[in-house]
């Protein structure tokens, strides 16, 4: 099987030496530390009301870890990818790639694969830590696979946005800033729009899952909500209230709204809706980036 040469080169150079080993070890240590702090903190808080360890605390820990991973993915991928083409241009190696018989779309694909490979590496390295939750039940291996799949789709979306801006802007710094602004707008814009609309139409506004999905589908945070409430519920096995804050409450409302939905949408959880958008939008950005990179179409 032919591996994309750009991916091959990047893996070779990035994984050489101790730098990447130290990075991965630091990342896993950080996750362990976060989980430990969470467990110790919960043990202190609930030591009077719950004499024994509540397994749902582990699920809360899992939620915290995946949120941290998601935020890291969202913040780290643009930093890796948003300079991918512009740095080749600055290093004066872009022309040397374009003069080969590798088409522009394969160069773009190679750059995107590099960032997805980085994220996969960190995700796989963190599996033993995230897997701690298996000891307590509630989260299954398929849930984890589903989550990784969603992370990959989100990485694809973030990476294609980064590579697009990296292709159209010549300077690294401009490309990075534009990518973050764009991702910020795509992530929080739909929520702001939705809340603004609901505030303006308080009297008549009665949200359904369909209307929410149609408003929030571009935002990966909307998709991520699927995983945040996975395995958790508002009430514990004894019927006592056991909330995990704002996101769990929103997630719970979603569960209710999705259950009341009819047709295909009933089976389209937020991560599927957002995942489909991510794939389609990424394909569009890849096509646009390839066209912008194609030398005979460039005017300068």
């Amino acid at each position: 099987m032919k591996i994309n040469p750009i991916l091959q080169k990047d893996i070779k150079t990035k994984l050489r030496g101790w730098r990447s080993v130290i990075l991965i070890c630091s990342y896993v240590t950080l996750l362990i530390f976060i989980l430990l702090i969470y467990f110790v903190g919960n043990d202190l808080i609930y030591s009077y009301t719950m004499p024994s360890f509540n397994p749902r605390v582990a699920i809360g820990g899992y939620n915290l870890l995946i949120t941290f991973q998601f935020a890291l993915l969202y913040l780290a991928v643009p930093a890796i990818i948003a300079t991918s083409i512009s740095s080749e241009r600055e290093r004066q190696t872009l022309d040397l790639m374009l003069v080969t018989k590798t088409p522009a779309r394969e160069i773009i694909a190679g750059k995107i694969l590099v960032s997805i490979a980085h994220i996969l590496l960190l995700l796989i390295a963190s599996m033993p830590v995230v897997g701690v939750v298996f000891f307590f039940g509630g989260i299954g291996f398929p849930d984890l696979l589903k989550l990784i799949f969603f992370y990959i789709l989100t990485s694809l979306f973030v990476a294609s946005s980064g590579v697009f801006f990296s292709t159209i802007f010549k300077r690294n710094i401009v490309s990075i800033i534009t990518t973050y602004i764009f991702l910020g707008l795509m992530t929080f814009g739909p929520f702001l729009g939705f809340f603004a609309y609901s505030l303006l139409n308080q009297m008549t506004f009665s949200p359904t899952y369909r209307s929410i999905a149609l408003s929030l589908f571009p935002s990966p945070v909307f998709g991520f909500l699927s995983f945040y409430f996975s395995g958790t519920s508002h009430y514990d096995i004894f019927g006592s209230y056991y909330g995990h804050g704002l996101f769990s409450s929103i997630a719970y409302e979603f569960e209710v709204l999705i259950a009341s939905e009819t047709g295909l949408l009933r089976y389209m959880q937020p991560w599927i809706v957002n995942g489909i958008f991510s794939v389609l939008f990424s394909l569009l950005l890849i096509l646009l980036s390839s066209a912008a990179l194609n030398p005979v179409r460039r005017k300068k």
Partner: peptide, 20 residues
């Protein structure tokens, strides 16, 4: 137009790969 973090033969391998 060179990648400083590559060895000479890796540099050649990389471009060979780009030419299939």
């Amino acid at each position: 137009g060179v990648y400083d973090d590559l060895k000479v033969y890796e540099y050649m391998d990389f471009y060979a790969g780009l030419y299939g």
